[in-house]
Design a protein around this nucleic acid. Structure first.
Lengths: 349, 349
DNA sequence: TTGAAAGCGCTAACAT
DNA sequence: ATGTTAGCGCTTTCAA
């Protein structure tokens, strides 16, 4: 155990005592005005005399006063807070969504509350229920909640979905129809006659869309498409997935996401299988790491930051009374990033 | 633009109308009891008759009632919310801290508010000021705030630091003294006579600790230690760092963190430099990706989840009145993960 | 065990 | 332009 003193250079190593926070009343009294004037000085700069405002702000500053967001929220009904719920914070895919949402939110002067549903619909529902009364709206990313639950949640709070669609609920989704077609065409161009899809969680909406798109594109391109899984959408599941692929003799695989694809890559390397010489591997998302894994991964990139930011925009644009408004799903473009994990079908003339 | 209808299977594509949320008064009236009884039914299960409680809960359920955390917070002074502030949400290093904190917080039945300071002390201070009145406490990860600001913040809110120390403020820190020694000993064992440290942001406390530790260990091991930088702690800065290293003719480099190290690796590969044949590279953190970059990175691992969880623990353990309590810095062990980016000094006999 | 009543800190009519 | 007053939804004494 290291000596902790090195971290604590001063002798007076005693935490400061708790101090009472100044309230609007303290400021009002000290400034010789009514609380409403203080309130206005902060939130309605136009509706108060220039000089009084300056005075009030000065007094407030000297008292270290900051408005209590909780009290503001209670009275006004607006918390200036929005909640973002993702299945797994540590998945770099969601890091982009979070960052995009964070920036949009803070630019709008609001606060972001982040929830991690731990890939569980029950946990997600709990979060929505618990946070609901305290936030101005929700962005649910890759939600696993059933349509009915989403509908009810949307009645109580403005709600926008990311990479999930549900009737009557606004959403921002990636253009998987086009993207999957790009993937299939790419494989076809390399001479592959078939591929295997490594499916993710059964409840995943984007997983279903991806598979549907791949099937349609495969049919059009004259390729055979098979499906294994479901697999957990993380690297650890890659071993099982890779083994299944090897047993099947497939020449190309498309994984539910990059995490799984990277796991597959690791396992294939472990087993001495050459990628792309023997098998081509494609992922989804273009997460952090997809460009420097070995070999670098061909993957369908989404603009995740955009998705997060757009979702927040949509949320803030929702009229307070959502009744009778119809809306559009916002479809974000995807792009195929071809790296070195895909190559010609082995044995091709 | 894809046809959006595919995402929206139902014809009745109209958002549901906003609905009023049930309050404690609604429940009280519907259940024929006082609001205080409803309140107790939820928060003081012991202090209410078994049967009335059951009845109240049933009525509440049927009305879809959930207590409003905002109102609870205002009266009780406890928000059941803690804030975690990190410099950059998309940095996988902090993902671990976030996840650990999230789990600890949600296990305690609390809510986590996440702030991204965008590597800026000013933004960090703004967050602390704004969130302060609304949360029960702060965890500041890799804080860039000056001691004085931290001291004042700690007077107003319980506050725990992660990988930063400041007089009078509790903290959870990695054992860099031991860790840096491991790094240096490892390089020395491989025959290196010197190394270069690629420094991170000047305000970074952990960066300073890392450099101090490396210097001390180098002196003890008889190695020469040089320092370049500061560099931004991300991959993009890796190119400049790598070029500087090449120009210097160093045989080993230790980067401020893995992000920078991975950037260096990419640049070296680009320039046809063999790692570890010509240069050995070491990082800090063992982030996601450090094990599958090329070559896999030797790095000093921290238990980031632990750090996040411990910080929350410490926070919750702080007495409401912090006065006069002294505390310990919690020092977390590190471990050197040796992968393939380090090897014998080139030209060694 | 339950109810009545007084706020928590702030905002938003309404009055001045 | 500013002050007065009545709550927002809930918890918490204090009485019954």
């Amino acid at each position: 155990m290291a000596n902790v003193c090195q971290y604590l250079p001063y002798a007076a190593d005693v935490p400061p005592p708790a101090r009472r926070r100044a309230t609007i009343t303290d400021v009002a009294r000290a400034a010789g005005v009514a609380t409403s004037t203080v309130s206005r000085a902060f939130t309605r700069p136009g509706r108060v005399n220039h000089r009084t405002r300056a005075h009030v702000l000065e007094v407030a500053e000297s008292l270290g006063y900051a408005p209590n967001p909780t009290a503001q929220a209670l009275e006004s009904g607006r918390s200036n807070t929005v909640a973002l719920v993702v299945p797994d914070i540590t998945n770099p895919y969601f890091a982009g969504v979070i960052k995009g949402a964070e920036q949009a939110v803070s630019q709008a002067g609001l606060t972001l509350v982040l929830g991690d549903s731990q890939e569980s619909a029950a946990q997600e529902e709990r979060l929505v229920r618990r946070l609901g009364p305290a936030v101005d709206g929700f962005v649910l990313s890759a939600s696993r909640l059933p349509d009915e639950v989403l509908r009810r949640a949307a009645e109580l709070n403005p709600l926008v979905l990311v990479n999930r669609a549900s009737p009557g609920v606004p959403c921002v989704v990636a253009d998987y129809d086009h993207g999957t077609r790009q993937i299939v065409d790419h494989l076809a161009a390399l001479g592959h006659r078939s591929f295997v899809f490594l499916g993710g969680p059964a409840e995943s909406w984007s997983g279903a869309r991806r598979w549907a798109g791949l099937q349609a594109a495969a049919a059009d391109a004259g390729l055979d498409a098979g499906r294994f899984g479901p697999f957990a959408p993380d690297r650890t599941a890659g071993a099982a997935a890779a083994d299944a692929v090897l047993a099947s003799g497939a020449t190309a695989v498309v994984a539910h996401n990059d995490m799984l694809a990277i796991g597959v890559l690791s396992r294939l390397a472990e087993r001495g299988v050459d990628v792309p010489g023997e098998i081509s591997v494609v992922g989804f998302d273009d997460v952090f790491g997809a460009d420097f894994c070995h070999p670098p991964l061909t993957t369908l990139a989404e603009r995740t930051r955009d998705a997060g930011a757009r979702a927040i925009e949509s949320l803030l644009a929702l009229p307070p009374d959502r009744a009778g408004r119809d809306f559009q799903a916002r479809v974000l473009p995807t792009q195929l990033v071809v790296r070195r994990s895909t190559g010609p079908r082995p044995g091709r003339s």
